[in-house]
Design a protein around this nucleic acid. Structure first.
Length: 118
DNA sequence: ATCCTGACCACCT
DNA sequence: CAGGTGGCCAGGA
């Protein structure tokens, strides 16, 4: 899978929407692909959120991609970071405990824009 | 055009 | 209750 060289208007908007939501995630909290998809109206599958995240490192503004994990609290996207440990280290630097790719106390740390943002 | 695969998830056996 | 399946949309072979 790769990022489109010349994204359509629709794709750029989708990327920006996803990135914007991710930037709203508070330090020390996490959110999930599915949550974002649902918040954006579920018009795109959760897979598309993950797809948009691949464009995170090419975005103009910083996107804390390490705060986006899957619904089980697993760091499924860590392979896409500069190093395999970068994601976990970024989370731990914010006070989040990660053991064996699993965010501890994940349920309490979960940040859902639909309910937290209003 | 067809089939496969993907930073996923909800639903159905 | 665990594993399988389909759906989501897009891109590459």
């Amino acid at each position: 899978m790769s990022i489109p060289r010349n994204p359509t208007e629709q794709q750029r908007n989708f990327f920006q929407d996803v990135h914007e939501v991710v930037r709203l995630v508070p330090v020390g909290r996490v959110t999930t692909y599915g949550t974002i998809a649902h918040y954006l109206g579920a018009r795109h599958g959760a897979r598309m959120v993950g797809w948009a995240m691949m464009a995170a490192h090419t975005a103009n503004e910083y996107v804390p991609a390490h705060r986006v994990i899957n619904r089980n609290g697993l760091l499924t996207g860590k392979q896409h970071f500069a190093t395999p440990t970068a994601m976990q280290e970024a989370l731990e630097a914010e006070g989040i405990r990660v053991i064996d790719d699993q965010v501890q106390d994940f349920k309490r740390l979960l940040w859902d824009p639909a309910t937290e943002l209003e």
